[in-house]
Every structure is written in structure tokens, then in C-alpha cells.
């Protein structure tokens, strides 16, 4: 069954998109993380430079490789470089 993944956007990623959350549709077979990131970059050109320097978190875990398949209900957080303190 097709559904959506939840994309959480913080700081400069949120500013680039104008929203703190997106829910792109995915096919039942899922979508590769690389493909999702490319799709977001095409849809939101201002997000592209932010994506290049951001860490990606899938379902609460940092992802080192983009060879991950996302399925409906999964959550991806886009973390631009941190600046706390």
C-alpha cells in the first residue's frame, strides 16, 4: 500500500523549504534515501546547498550511507550543521 514518509526539517533546512515537515508519497516498494534527497533538492532548490552539508537521521539513527530504502511511515530528519552552545 502506498503511503508517505515524514521528513523533519530544522534550522536552515526549514527556512529553505518554508515548513518544518513534509510528507512525500512513496510507492509500496519504498524509495531509496538517495532518490528522496534528490527529489527534495529538485522540488526545493534552496534546500540543495543545505542537503550537501546536512546529517541525515532515519527513524532516530544517524545514516552513514544513503543506500537505505524508506517505506511508508518511516521518518527522516535533516540536520544542518549544529550550532548549539
Amino acid at each position: 500500500m502506498a503511503g508517505t514518509v515524514r521528513v523533519l526539517l530544522f534550522a536552515s533546512a526549514r527556512e529553505a523549504v518554508g515548513s518544518s515537515q513534509l510528507q512525500p508519497k512513496v510507492e509500496p516498494a519504498g524509495i531509496g534515501l538517495t532518490e528522496l534527497v534528490e527529489r527534495l533538492g529538485l522540488e526545493f532548490p534552496r534546500l540543495r546547498p543545505v542537503l550537501r552539508v546536512s546529517r541525515l537521521v532515519v527513524n532516530g539513527e544517524y545514516i552513514g550511507s544513503k543506500h537505505v530504502t524508506l517505506r511508508a511511515g518511516d521518518e527522516v530528519a535533516i540536520h544542518p550543521p549544529y550550532s548549539g552552545g
Binding site: 530544522f10 536552515s12 530528519a77 540536520h79 544542518p80 549544529y82 550550532s83 548549539g84 552552545g85
Partner: peptide
Amino acid sequence: MIDRLKQETPIWKS
């Protein structure tokens, strides 16, 4: 601790 926090903790300021 403060060095690690600045590097690793997902907090942002604007």
C-alpha cells in the same frame, strides 16, 4: 562536555 555538545548535539541557533 561543552566541546562535544557543540559538535554532536542537534541544537541550532538563529
